[in-house]
Design a binder for these strands. Structure first.
Lengths: 144, 144
DNA sequence: CGAGATTGCATAGCCCGGCTATATAGCCGG
DNA sequence: CCGGCTATATAGCCGGGCTATGCAATCTCG
């Protein structure tokens, strides 16, 4: 097993654990898919359902289901797409934004306590890695 | 929102996306929970079901279900714990180890293509971040 | 302009991972 | 040897993930 593979093994497993920490630390039962979806909308702005699905890397029907749930909880809203009557723009509501912000704060608190021994340098490494990953996903929109 | 919170937002979302990439790139339909479980067993060796659940950050019943599935596919085996008849040690089988290794290779290939523009320095950053995260989880076994 | 192809989303129906609550069986202290 | 604790299993639920399919809007092009 080469170095790249090992790095990804570690990243994937840690990603899973972090996901689980995030899911549990919040206390509430809201699922990871909800936060992932809201986070993407928050950082990239309103977008179509299909684009949201591809960003979130789930199938279109899955995203339809998630969005339906979010809409019924008033966390997102659908805006008519004036260019294409089949399509909607999905946007967060203020309620959704607040829920997301609160949850992120809780996750950060919980996770920080797991990593409170880190030096400034280690924090920079994490921050830089997060940026690199984000750019990787952005650049490769993946012609799914 | 402070820097720490922002870093975690980015990490959590990227972790999710990476999880989804990993789930999809392999082609097969095997679920993330399977890989997470096998990876933990591979890196930390055989352990009890309860410990595995806590490492994997899921509830004990959930791990019972996952382990049952893995066992029926002959990917793990249960070893009698001579000290406590209620307990088992869960260990990977050669078949499980091979499956995991193959999958990791595929994930690394897929993910590498997403990040093939990275410099050596950026790779080091990712590698270092992975190590930091791993240590964080190890150190905080979390008295769930 | 109109018919077929394409596109964007919704619906149906399935599987499985996640949870809580609860049962069962083995361990341990008096 | 009895009550309580601990380790796992079972039951039953919810919801996210998928494929297959339907349907309406858009586009293409003769």
């Amino acid at each position: 097993m080469n170095e790249t593979t090992r790095t990804f093994q570690s990243l994937v497993v840690s990603a899973h654990r972090l996901t689980r920490v995030a899911a549990q630390s919040s206390g509430d039962r809201t699922s990871p898919a909800i936060w992932r979806t809201l986070s993407i909308l928050e950082s990239d702005g309103p977008m179509r359902l299909g684009e949201l699905a591809s960003q979130s890397r789930v199938s279109q029907p899955t995203m339809s289901k998630i969005v339906a749930g979010l809409a019924s909880d008033d966390l997102i809203r659908r805006i008519a797409d004036t260019d294409d009557a089949r399509s909607w723009l999905i946007a967060t509501t203020p309620k959704g934004q607040k829920l997301l912000a609160d949850w992120l704060t809780r996750v950060a608190d919980e996770a920080s306590s797991m990593f409170d021994g880190l030096s400034d340098e280690e924090w920079s490494t994490l921050s830089a890695a997060a940026a690199i990953l984000e750019r990787g996903f952005d650049s490769k929109q993946v012609a799914a």
